[in-house]
Protein backbone atom coordinates (compact mmCIF):
# COMPACT_ATOMS: atom_id res chain seq x y z
CA UNK A 1 0.00 0.00 0.00
CA UNK A 2 2.24 2.75 1.29
CA UNK A 3 5.63 3.05 -0.43
CA UNK A 4 7.43 3.96 2.78
CA UNK A 5 5.62 1.41 4.92
CA UNK A 6 7.66 -0.22 7.62
CA UNK A 7 8.51 -3.88 7.06
CA UNK A 8 6.88 -6.34 9.41
CA UNK A 9 10.16 -7.10 11.19
CA UNK A 10 11.94 -10.42 11.19
CA UNK A 11 10.05 -13.42 12.53
CA UNK A 12 13.14 -14.45 14.45
CA UNK A 13 13.16 -11.19 16.42
CA UNK A 14 9.44 -11.51 17.17
CA UNK A 15 9.98 -15.07 18.32
CA UNK A 16 12.89 -14.07 20.57
CA UNK A 17 10.98 -11.22 22.17
CA UNK A 18 7.87 -13.25 22.79
CA UNK A 19 9.62 -16.29 24.19
CA UNK A 20 12.61 -14.62 25.86
CA UNK A 21 11.54 -15.60 29.40
CA UNK A 22 10.94 -19.22 28.45
CA UNK A 23 14.15 -19.43 26.42
CA UNK A 24 16.13 -18.00 29.29
CA UNK A 25 14.79 -20.51 31.84
CA UNK A 26 15.25 -23.30 29.29
CA UNK A 27 18.89 -22.28 28.94
CA UNK A 28 19.21 -22.19 32.70
CA UNK A 29 17.68 -25.66 33.07
CA UNK A 30 20.13 -27.06 30.51
CA UNK A 31 23.08 -25.47 32.34
CA UNK A 32 21.88 -27.05 35.62
CA UNK A 33 21.50 -30.42 33.89
CA UNK A 34 25.02 -30.31 32.44
CA UNK A 35 26.54 -29.05 35.69
CA UNK A 36 25.01 -31.78 37.85
CA UNK A 37 25.68 -34.48 35.24
CA UNK A 38 29.32 -33.42 35.44
CA UNK A 39 29.23 -33.21 39.23
CA UNK A 40 27.67 -36.60 39.94
CA UNK A 41 27.71 -39.81 37.88
CA UNK A 42 24.34 -40.83 39.35
CA UNK A 43 22.50 -37.65 38.44
CA UNK A 44 21.51 -38.68 34.91
CA UNK A 45 20.78 -42.31 35.81
CA UNK A 46 17.27 -43.53 35.03
CA UNK A 47 16.54 -44.26 38.66
CA UNK A 48 17.48 -40.79 39.83
CA UNK A 49 15.59 -39.08 37.02
CA UNK A 50 12.39 -41.00 37.83
CA UNK A 51 12.88 -40.22 41.49
CA UNK A 52 13.28 -36.55 40.66
CA UNK A 53 10.04 -36.55 38.71
CA UNK A 54 8.23 -38.42 41.47
CA UNK A 55 9.44 -36.02 44.15
CA UNK A 56 8.69 -32.86 42.21
CA UNK A 57 5.17 -33.95 41.19
CA UNK A 58 3.31 -32.10 44.00
CA UNK A 59 5.38 -28.97 43.32
CA UNK A 60 4.62 -29.10 39.61
CA UNK A 61 0.88 -29.72 40.06
CA UNK A 62 0.45 -26.74 42.37
CA UNK A 63 2.80 -24.55 40.30
CA UNK A 64 0.59 -25.10 37.23
CA UNK A 65 -2.47 -23.86 39.13
CA UNK A 66 -0.44 -21.05 40.70
CA UNK A 67 0.48 -19.90 37.18
CA UNK A 68 -3.22 -19.22 36.59
CA UNK A 69 -3.52 -17.33 39.90
CA UNK A 70 -0.45 -15.20 39.22
CA UNK A 71 -1.54 -14.55 35.62
CA UNK A 72 -4.69 -12.86 36.95
CA UNK A 73 -2.42 -10.69 39.10
CA UNK A 74 -3.25 -12.57 42.31
CA UNK A 75 -1.16 -14.74 44.61
CA UNK A 76 -2.04 -17.79 46.71
CA UNK A 77 0.04 -18.16 49.86
CA UNK A 78 -2.27 -20.77 51.38
CA UNK A 79 -1.36 -23.76 49.19
CA UNK A 80 1.16 -25.23 51.65
CA UNK A 81 -1.36 -25.12 54.48
CA UNK A 82 -4.04 -26.62 52.22
CA UNK A 83 -1.64 -29.48 51.47
CA UNK A 84 -1.18 -30.03 55.23
CA UNK A 85 -4.91 -29.88 55.96
CA UNK A 86 -5.78 -32.33 53.17
CA UNK A 87 -2.85 -34.52 54.19
CA UNK A 88 -4.19 -34.75 57.75
CA UNK A 89 -7.86 -34.99 56.81
CA UNK A 90 -7.20 -37.77 54.30
CA UNK A 91 -5.31 -39.84 56.88
CA UNK A 92 -8.07 -39.33 59.44
CA UNK A 93 -10.78 -40.26 56.94
CA UNK A 94 -8.93 -43.39 55.79
CA UNK A 95 -8.29 -44.40 59.39
CA UNK A 96 -12.02 -44.00 60.06
CA UNK A 97 -12.62 -46.57 57.34
CA UNK A 98 -13.89 -44.43 54.46
CA UNK A 99 -13.37 -45.95 51.00
CA UNK A 100 -10.35 -44.43 49.27
CA UNK A 101 -12.17 -43.19 46.13
CA UNK A 102 -14.61 -41.35 48.37
CA UNK A 103 -11.72 -39.85 50.33
CA UNK A 104 -10.07 -38.65 47.14
CA UNK A 105 -13.27 -36.99 45.92
CA UNK A 106 -13.98 -35.45 49.32
CA UNK A 107 -10.47 -34.05 49.62
CA UNK A 108 -10.56 -32.49 46.16
CA UNK A 109 -13.90 -30.99 47.23
CA UNK A 110 -12.30 -29.58 50.39
CA UNK A 111 -9.59 -27.99 48.24
CA UNK A 112 -12.19 -26.48 45.90
CA UNK A 113 -14.19 -25.04 48.79
CA UNK A 114 -11.15 -23.64 50.58
CA UNK A 115 -10.04 -22.03 47.29
CA UNK A 116 -13.54 -20.81 46.49
CA UNK A 117 -13.90 -19.03 49.84
CA UNK A 118 -10.56 -17.29 49.33
CA UNK A 119 -11.52 -16.37 45.77
CA UNK A 120 -14.77 -14.89 47.01
CA UNK A 121 -13.01 -12.74 49.62
CA UNK A 122 -10.42 -11.47 47.18
CA UNK A 123 -12.49 -11.04 43.99
CA UNK A 124 -15.92 -10.10 45.33
CA UNK A 125 -14.97 -8.37 48.58
CA UNK A 126 -11.97 -6.55 47.17
CA UNK A 127 -9.47 -7.71 49.80
CA UNK A 128 -6.01 -8.19 48.22
CA UNK A 129 -5.36 -11.90 47.66
CA UNK A 130 -2.02 -11.55 49.46
CA UNK A 131 -3.89 -10.71 52.70
CA UNK A 132 -6.72 -13.25 52.26
CA UNK A 133 -4.38 -16.14 51.53
CA UNK A 134 -1.94 -15.07 54.24
CA UNK A 135 -4.82 -15.39 56.71
CA UNK A 136 -5.64 -18.84 55.33
CA UNK A 137 -1.97 -19.84 55.43
CA UNK A 138 -2.09 -19.41 59.20
CA UNK A 139 -5.65 -20.52 59.76
CA UNK A 140 -5.63 -23.73 57.73
CA UNK A 141 -2.36 -24.86 59.31
CA UNK A 142 -3.86 -24.25 62.73
CA UNK A 143 -6.92 -26.24 61.78
CA UNK A 144 -4.74 -29.15 60.65
CA UNK A 145 -2.76 -29.01 63.92
CA UNK A 146 -5.98 -29.01 65.92
CA UNK A 147 -7.27 -32.07 64.04
CA UNK A 148 -4.10 -34.12 64.52
CA UNK A 149 -2.98 -32.52 67.81
CA UNK A 150 0.39 -32.31 66.10
CA UNK A 151 0.80 -36.09 65.73
CA UNK A 152 1.45 -37.90 62.48
CA UNK A 153 -1.46 -40.19 61.57
CA UNK A 154 -0.53 -43.48 59.87
CA UNK A 155 -2.34 -44.70 56.77
CA UNK A 156 -2.74 -48.49 56.71
CA UNK A 157 -0.75 -49.80 53.72
CA UNK A 158 -2.09 -52.19 51.11
CA UNK A 159 -4.98 -50.21 49.68
CA UNK A 160 -5.11 -48.74 46.20
CA UNK A 161 -4.64 -45.32 47.81
CA UNK A 162 -0.87 -46.03 48.00
CA UNK A 163 -0.70 -46.13 44.20
CA UNK A 164 -1.36 -42.40 44.15
CA UNK A 165 2.01 -41.77 45.75
CA UNK A 166 4.09 -44.91 45.18
CA UNK A 167 2.64 -46.66 42.13
CA UNK A 168 4.15 -46.92 38.70
CA UNK A 169 2.75 -47.36 35.24
CA UNK A 170 5.52 -49.22 33.47
CA UNK A 171 8.66 -47.31 34.45
CA UNK A 172 6.81 -44.05 35.10
CA UNK A 173 5.75 -43.12 38.64
CA UNK A 174 2.03 -42.35 39.01
CA UNK A 175 2.62 -38.94 40.68
CA UNK A 176 4.81 -37.89 37.74
CA UNK A 177 2.10 -38.96 35.30
CA UNK A 178 -0.51 -36.99 37.24
CA UNK A 179 1.79 -33.96 37.18
CA UNK A 180 2.43 -34.26 33.46
CA UNK A 181 -1.29 -34.59 32.79
CA UNK A 182 -1.93 -31.48 34.90
CA UNK A 183 0.75 -29.58 33.01
CA UNK A 184 -0.69 -30.62 29.66
CA UNK A 185 -4.24 -29.63 30.61
CA UNK A 186 -2.93 -26.37 32.08
CA UNK A 187 -1.06 -25.55 28.89
CA UNK A 188 -4.07 -26.22 26.65
CA UNK A 189 -6.46 -24.28 28.90
CA UNK A 190 -4.26 -21.20 29.43
CA UNK A 191 -3.08 -20.93 25.85
CA UNK A 192 -5.98 -22.27 23.83
CA UNK A 193 -9.32 -21.64 25.51
CA UNK A 194 -11.62 -18.70 26.02
CA UNK A 195 -11.27 -19.18 29.78
CA UNK A 196 -7.48 -18.95 29.56
CA UNK A 197 -7.73 -15.83 27.43
CA UNK A 198 -10.02 -14.24 30.01
CA UNK A 199 -7.60 -15.17 32.82
CA UNK A 200 -4.86 -13.32 30.93
CA UNK A 201 -7.15 -10.36 30.17
CA UNK A 202 -8.17 -9.96 33.84
CA UNK A 203 -4.49 -9.84 34.81
CA UNK A 204 -3.51 -7.50 31.98
CA UNK A 205 -6.24 -4.91 32.50
CA UNK A 206 -9.09 -5.67 34.89
CA UNK A 207 -11.10 -2.61 33.93
CA UNK A 208 -10.77 -3.30 30.20
CA UNK A 209 -11.83 -6.90 30.73
CA UNK A 210 -14.87 -5.75 32.69
CA UNK A 211 -15.80 -3.20 30.02
CA UNK A 212 -15.46 -5.90 27.35
CA UNK A 213 -18.14 -7.90 29.13
CA UNK A 214 -15.84 -10.54 30.65
CA UNK A 215 -17.13 -11.74 34.05
CA UNK A 216 -13.92 -10.42 35.61
CA UNK A 217 -14.75 -11.17 39.25
CA UNK A 218 -15.86 -14.71 38.54
CA UNK A 219 -12.66 -15.35 36.60
CA UNK A 220 -10.50 -13.82 39.36
CA UNK A 221 -12.25 -15.99 41.97
CA UNK A 222 -12.17 -19.18 39.88
CA UNK A 223 -8.37 -19.40 39.75
CA UNK A 224 -8.31 -19.88 43.54
CA UNK A 225 -10.60 -22.87 43.15
CA UNK A 226 -8.02 -24.28 40.73
CA UNK A 227 -5.13 -23.70 43.16
CA UNK A 228 -7.21 -25.19 46.00
CA UNK A 229 -7.95 -28.36 44.03
CA UNK A 230 -4.32 -28.62 42.91
CA UNK A 231 -3.11 -28.24 46.51
CA UNK A 232 -5.56 -30.94 47.59
CA UNK A 233 -4.23 -33.29 44.91
CA UNK A 234 -0.68 -32.54 46.05
CA UNK A 235 -1.75 -33.27 49.64
CA UNK A 236 -3.21 -36.64 48.62
CA UNK A 237 -0.07 -37.61 46.71
CA UNK A 238 2.15 -36.62 49.63
CA UNK A 239 0.01 -38.58 52.08
CA UNK A 240 0.06 -41.66 49.84
CA UNK A 241 3.80 -41.46 49.29
CA UNK A 242 4.69 -41.08 52.95
CA UNK A 243 1.95 -43.41 54.16
CA UNK A 244 0.87 -40.93 56.80
CA UNK A 245 -0.90 -37.66 57.30
CA UNK A 246 0.80 -34.84 59.13
CA UNK A 247 -0.16 -31.29 59.94
CA UNK A 248 3.51 -30.39 59.59
CA UNK A 249 3.65 -31.32 55.91
CA UNK A 250 4.58 -28.79 53.24
CA UNK A 251 5.88 -25.96 55.44
CA UNK A 252 7.19 -23.24 53.13
CA UNK A 253 5.77 -25.09 50.13
CA UNK A 254 3.93 -21.97 48.88
CA UNK A 255 7.21 -20.09 48.49
CA UNK A 256 8.79 -22.93 46.54
CA UNK A 257 5.75 -22.96 44.23
CA UNK A 258 5.83 -19.20 43.69
CA UNK A 259 9.59 -19.36 43.05
CA UNK A 260 9.06 -22.04 40.38
CA UNK A 261 6.37 -19.98 38.65
CA UNK A 262 8.34 -16.73 38.73
CA UNK A 263 11.52 -18.51 37.65
CA UNK A 264 9.55 -19.76 34.64
CA UNK A 265 8.87 -16.22 33.49
CA UNK A 266 5.29 -15.61 34.62
CA UNK A 267 4.93 -11.97 35.62
CA UNK A 268 3.92 -11.22 39.21
CA UNK A 269 2.14 -8.15 37.86
CA UNK A 270 -0.28 -10.39 35.97
CA UNK A 271 -1.21 -10.62 32.31
CA UNK A 272 1.68 -12.86 31.27
CA UNK A 273 1.68 -16.54 32.17
CA UNK A 274 3.57 -19.44 30.67
CA UNK A 275 2.97 -23.08 31.54
CA UNK A 276 6.07 -24.25 29.64
CA UNK A 277 8.11 -21.81 31.73
CA UNK A 278 6.51 -23.08 34.94
CA UNK A 279 7.40 -26.70 34.04
CA UNK A 280 11.00 -25.69 33.35
CA UNK A 281 11.14 -23.55 36.50
CA UNK A 282 9.86 -26.43 38.62
CA UNK A 283 12.33 -28.89 37.11
CA UNK A 284 15.20 -26.44 37.66
CA UNK A 285 14.37 -26.07 41.35
CA UNK A 286 13.97 -29.84 41.67
CA UNK A 287 17.32 -30.44 39.93
CA UNK A 288 19.14 -27.99 42.18
CA UNK A 289 17.82 -29.72 45.31
CA UNK A 290 18.51 -33.21 43.99
CA UNK A 291 21.86 -32.45 42.31
CA UNK A 292 23.47 -30.69 45.27
CA UNK A 293 22.58 -33.61 47.55
CA UNK A 294 24.14 -36.06 45.07
CA UNK A 295 27.27 -33.88 45.05
CA UNK A 296 27.38 -34.26 48.85
CA UNK A 297 26.87 -30.57 49.44
CA UNK A 298 25.40 -29.83 52.85
CA UNK A 299 21.58 -29.69 52.68
CA UNK A 300 21.74 -26.36 54.47
CA UNK A 301 23.81 -25.02 51.65
CA UNK A 302 21.13 -26.20 49.19
CA UNK A 303 18.74 -23.61 50.55
CA UNK A 304 21.30 -20.84 50.10
CA UNK A 305 22.08 -22.01 46.58
CA UNK A 306 18.40 -22.23 45.64
CA UNK A 307 17.80 -18.69 46.87
CA UNK A 308 20.82 -17.32 45.04
CA UNK A 309 19.92 -19.14 41.83
CA UNK A 310 16.33 -17.90 41.87
CA UNK A 311 17.49 -14.31 42.27
CA UNK A 312 20.20 -14.73 39.65
CA UNK A 313 17.93 -16.37 37.11
CA UNK A 314 15.14 -13.84 37.49
CA UNK A 315 17.67 -11.01 37.31
CA UNK A 316 19.17 -12.42 34.10
CA UNK A 317 15.71 -12.95 32.76
CA UNK A 318 14.70 -9.35 33.44
CA UNK A 319 17.92 -8.01 31.90
CA UNK A 320 17.86 -10.19 28.80
CA UNK A 321 14.15 -9.68 28.40
CA UNK A 322 14.33 -5.91 28.75
CA UNK A 323 17.09 -5.62 26.17
CA UNK A 324 15.44 -7.91 23.63
CA UNK A 325 12.04 -6.33 23.96
CA UNK A 326 13.47 -2.85 23.52
CA UNK A 327 11.98 0.45 24.66
CA UNK A 328 8.61 -0.13 22.96
CA UNK A 329 7.41 -2.42 25.69
CA UNK A 330 5.47 -0.94 28.57
CA UNK A 331 5.54 -1.94 32.23
Amino acid sequence: MNASARPAGSRRADFLIRYAPVLSIAGFAVICLIFFAWGSPYFLSGGNMLNLFRQSAPLLIVAIAMTFVITTGGIDLSVGSTVALVNALAAIALQAGLAWPLVVILMLGVGAIVGGVQGWFSAYQGIPSFIVTLAFLTGLRGFALLLTRGYSIPIAPGSWFDVLGRGSLGPLPVPALLALATAFVGFVVLDGTTYGRHVTAVGANLEAARRAGIPARRIAASVFVLSGIAAALAGLITAARLGSGSSNAAVGFELEVIAAVVLGGTSLFGGTGTIVGTVLGTLTIAMIGNGLILMHVSPFFTEIATGAIILGAVWLNARVFARLAGPGRRQ
Binding site: T193, T194, R197, A201, A204, E207, A212, G271
Partner: peptide, 25 residues
Protein backbone atom coordinates in the same frame (compact mmCIF):
# COMPACT_ATOMS: atom_id res chain seq x y z
CA UNK B 1 -8.17 2.91 25.55
CA UNK B 2 -9.10 -0.15 27.67
CA UNK B 3 -6.70 -2.47 25.88
CA UNK B 4 -4.88 -5.50 27.30
CA UNK B 5 -1.19 -4.85 26.64
CA UNK B 6 -0.08 -8.48 26.97
CA UNK B 7 -2.67 -9.83 24.51
CA UNK B 8 -2.19 -9.70 20.76
CA UNK B 9 -3.97 -7.40 18.31
CA UNK B 10 -6.56 -9.97 17.19
CA UNK B 11 -7.22 -10.94 20.80
CA UNK B 12 -7.89 -7.34 21.79
CA UNK B 13 -10.26 -6.74 18.89
CA UNK B 14 -12.25 -9.80 19.97
CA UNK B 15 -11.87 -9.37 23.73
CA UNK B 16 -14.95 -10.63 25.53
CA UNK B 17 -16.46 -12.08 22.33
CA UNK B 18 -13.72 -14.48 21.24
CA UNK B 19 -14.33 -16.74 18.28
CA UNK B 20 -14.34 -20.21 19.83
CA UNK B 21 -15.57 -23.72 19.28
CA UNK B 22 -16.78 -25.40 22.47
CA UNK B 23 -14.54 -23.23 24.62
CA UNK B 24 -11.42 -23.53 22.47
CA UNK B 25 -10.13 -20.39 20.79
Amino acid sequence: LSLCDTIDVAGNLFLGREIARSGFL
